[in-house]
């Protein structure tokens, strides 16, 4: 298939996905017990009379039917107007942009770390199959697979921040310091624990997947033939093993964007790290509807891009998909 055509197909898929997500989340929020006016006014509610309430409702279009409201909101979204966050009193897009920089750094570090470490562990386990090191890696993976990320976060906090005092206990920057005075080292020190927590959990999938794939490859007919032709040792594993399992592992890593995002929400909460995850939780708890909907759309986009990249890599790298798409 031609690349432009593929992009068109993917674009249509994205558009319909976003539309569905928008409808679903809009009506979910609509049916939720969150009262936007109360959320907006907050503690001053006592001083707002019923007439004033009605005026606000009318100003926001809350007296219209949900369908009309949705139309109003979605046409604003299409124009790029995501509204104003009630908590931050800033345009939603600005809030997301600010928070995303923090989250992105966190997720990128975790993504790379977990990918590289997981891949290496998987290879070692497969090559040394059934040895003590394989058992150790499997034990590590199974233990972590059944451990929630936030719990690991709390554990690391207890050990490295509370017990040993090596690293700060939370937040993205030191408390009580002016923004201009925050150094890069400060930022990195606040970043280490959340990033490690997120990576530790991410390792499992890649490691177990890589291990199984490599075991399959090493038992394949083509590795048998390669051995029959005198290939052996590291060069055998490199030529026929790693090249053939790198692609599925990479795809898995891209497809795991969703889990990464979900993990980041929890980890950011544990460490009070000022990223998108924390913003999402806050928006939900405090009834910041514009921000919440904006975040839903953004995270949909984020996960979709992850999957799209996975597909594209396959298309570009695996000769077989190229041929199949062409048919």
């Amino acid at each position: 298939m031609l690349l432009p055509l593929l992009f068109l197909k993917k674009f249509i898929r994205l558009a319909s996905l976003l539309f569905a997500v928008c409808i679903l989340s809009f009506f979910l929020v609509n049916k939720s017990p969150v009262d936007p006016i109360q959320a907006y006014v907050g503690a001053d509610m006592m001083r707002v009379g019923p007439e004033q309430r009605e005026k606000i409702a009318e100003h926001w279009g809350l007296d219209k039917t949900p369908v009309e409201q949705f139309y109003h909101w979605s046409s604003a979204i299409v124009r790029g107007d995501f509204g104003t966050s009630m908590i931050y009193r800033q345009p939603v897009l600005d809030v997301i942009k600010d928070k995303f920089i923090y989250s992105f750094a966190l997720m990128l570090a975790a993504w790379i770390l977990s990918g590289v470490i997981g891949f290496l562990l998987g290879i070692i386990a497969a090559v040394k199959r059934d040895s003590w090191i394989d058992r150790l890696i499997k034990l590590y993976c199974y233990t972590l697979a059944s451990t929630p990320a936030f719990w690991i976060g709390i554990l690391l906090l207890l050990i490295f921040a509370v017990g040993l005092g090596w690293l700060p206990i939370g937040l993205g920057v030191p408390a009580g310091v002016l923004t201009e005075e925050v150094t890069v080292i400060d930022r990195v020190r606040h970043f280490i624990l959340p990033a490690i927590t997120l990576s530790i959990v991410g390792v499992v999938n890649v490691a177990l997947h890589t291990r199984q794939k490599l075991i399959d490859v090493l038992q394949s007919d083509y590795v048998l033939f390669a051995r029959a032709r005198g290939e052996k040792g590291f060069s055998l594993i490199w030529r026929h093993g790693i090249r053939n399992i790198a692609l599925p592992a990479l795809t898995l890593q891209f497809a795991a964007f969703g889990e990464l995002f979900g993990g980041a929400v929890l980890v950011e909460l544990v460490f009070s790290y000022p990223g998108l995850g924390q913003a999402t939780v806050e928006a939900g708890l405090r009834g910041d509807v514009p921000l919440l909907l904006g975040l839903v759309i953004f995270s949909t986009l984020f996960v979709f891009i992850g999957n799209l990249l996975a597909d594209l890599i396959y298309l570009v790298v695996d000769p077989r998909t190229k041929e199949r798409e062409a048919i």
């Binding site: 007919d221 083509y222 033939f225 030529r239 090249r243």
Partner: peptide, 12 residues
């Protein structure tokens, strides 16, 4: 060694 089929070649 001359194997049976093309499956003995690395597909990638």
């Amino acid at each position: 060694f001359v194997p049976q089929s093309v499956n003995f070649l690395n597909p990638l």
